[in-house]
């Protein structure tokens, strides 16, 4: 990995960390809900029985609905820290399910 890319990634990570610390609900709605949506779809499409293509295509149809649902949950949940934690956890668990299983 090039040093420039590492610097960019570090800056993005610091920015996201600060944004999540200052405004967990807003950052979760704008960013973490999207990563959670993408990784959930990837994990489901990869691990579901049947053809990958079929699962992926259904996943794409469901994606906007899931995204809006995650965003809604960010304001439904009482604890703002549980919101950010929940979204990051969904992203992480889905990533593990895809990369490790």
């Amino acid at each position: 990995m090039s040093p420039l890319l590492i610097v960019v990634l570090v800056v993005v990570a610091v920015f996201l960390g600060l944004a999540t610390w200052r405004a967990p609900r807003l950052t979760s709605t704008l960013f973490w809900s999207l990563t959670a949506t993408i990784m959930t779809m990837v994990a489901i499409a990869d691990n579901s029985p049947g053809e990958t293509r079929e699962a992926l295509m259904f996943g794409v149809v469901l994606m906007p609905v899931l995204w809006a649902a995650f965003q809604f949950w960010c304001y439904w949940e009482r604890s703002k820290w549980r919101v950010a934690g929940g979204m990051i956890a969904i992203t992480s668990i889905s990533s593990v399910a895809f990369f490790a299983l």
């Binding site: 993408i38 990784m39 779809m41 990837v42 499409a45 990869d46 990958t52 992926l56 996943g59 794409v60 149809v61 994606m63 906007p64 609905v65 995204w67 809006a68 895809f98």
Partner: peptide, 21 residues
């Protein structure tokens, strides 16, 4: 909303999902 989101967002999200997969 659902059909419009699908028709538009697919152009942004499908490549990302597919690239990861």
């Amino acid at each position: 909303a659902v059909t419009g989101a699908y028709l538009g967002v697919i152009t942004l999200l499908l490549p990302i999902v597919a690239m990861i997969m």
